[in-house]
């Protein structure tokens, strides 16, 4: 386990790459995730950000929060742009060897990944583009004001599901795993060091790497800003969000999720949803539906883990 005291002094991790005074909301889970992702990747990184909060949180022209090359991009175009950048860098390296060792990162929201961006993401993964794709999942279109996305969980209020979403969350990490890419991981902004280590690992692997980060959003999920970390932790502890890695097809649970395969170790999902205003009007029946879905996710994992051992 990494030690914070050492990280602070680390020449790479001790730096900040998303500068303070930017326009993200107070207590933004996505911002915390990005901060730690960049601490792992360091300055030799090119970031592509398809439409998301992260086209706005970076601040207004001619100023910018990111202290790395940062490309705002159209909504559906994140992954394909990265394929182009990687190819462009390969072409440039022939002229200028100093262009070696640059990591290309696509940092997209759940809308840009799960909904409009999935075609491009799937294409880039199938092509094996050598880049890291990180989805920071705040479970709705937060930049446009909390509209339902494919990442919104069942029962959650959004402005386009005023009585709660009727469908379950799309399991994109598993879709990405089905592409057979060398590295897929999930993480949570409530566990920054776990995220940091996963990004460090992804950085060293050649090929397409996919990390899906749950990023609690205070204004969208309706909780007080100071609870952002706690909400993230509860998501993991209740099993609503599962932390794992899939390396060359082999899955391992990580962090607190390691001990949650047994249902009795998982907290009931009420502990997670009661913290958030977006679940305020969920009926007891719907809580059961959601709990059943969570348990089903774990059952699926159990089968997978049993099969591979």
């Amino acid at each position: 386990m990494v030690k914070l005291k050492e990280l602070i002094k680390d020449p790479v991790a001790g730096e900040e790459y998303f500068l303070k005074g930017n326009s993200s909301c107070a207590g933004c889970g996505g911002e915390l995730a990005f901060r730690w992702i960049m601490k792992a990747l360091g300055k030799r990184t090119i970031v592509v950000a398809p439409a998301s909060c992260f086209n706005v949180t970076i601040g207004l022209y001619p100023r910018a929060g990111p202290a790395i090359p940062y490309l705002n991009m159209a909504f559906a175009a994140g992954a394909a742009t990265c394929s182009g950048i990687v190819a462009g860098l390969a072409a440039r390296k022939k002229l200028d060897p100093s262009m070696e060792d640059i990591t290309v990162l696509c940092f997209a929201g759940d809308g840009g990944t799960i909904d409009i961006g999935i075609q491009g993401l799937s294409g880039a993964a199938e092509r094996g583009t050598d880049f890291i794709y990180i989805c920071y999942d705040n479970e709705a279109y937060m930049n446009t004001g909390t509209q339902r996305s494919g990442g919104t969980p069942f029962g959650a209020w959004t402005t386009t599901t005023p009585t709660g979403k009727k469908e379950h969350k799309k399991n994109v990490p598993m879709i990405m795993a089905a592409h057979g890419i060398p590295y897929v991981a999930t993480a949570c902004a409530g566990y920054p060091l776990d995220l940091y280590q996963k990004v460090l690992k992804a950085k060293k692997i050649k090929g397409t790497k996919y990390i899906h980060v749950l990023a609690p959003c205070a204004p969208g999920w309706r909780f007080p800003t100071e609870q952002a970390i706690e909400v993230g932790r509860k998501a993991v502890q209740t099993g609503m969000w599962i932390l794992y890695e899939i390396e060359d097809g082999k899955m391992t649970l990580s962090g607190p999720s390691k001990n949650l395969l047994d249902k009795k170790n998982r907290k009931p999902i009420e502990e997670y949803i009661k913290l958030q205003g977006r679940f305020r009007n969920i009926s007891p029946e719907d809580v059961k539906v959601l709990q059943k879905w969570v348990d089903r996710q774990w059952e699926d994992l159990k089968i997978r883990l049993a099969c591979q051992s």
């Binding site: 559906a76 175009a77 394909a80 742009t81 182009g84 190819a87 462009g88 072409a91 799937s122 294409g123």
Partner: peptide, 19 residues
């Protein structure tokens, strides 16, 4: 680069040309 759609054709060229 053999991409998966025309939208990605242009996104790809944009990414490359930025270099």
């Amino acid at each position: 680069i053999r991409v998966e759609s025309e939208h990605s054709v242009m996104a790809c060229l944009i990414g490359a040309s930025y270099n």
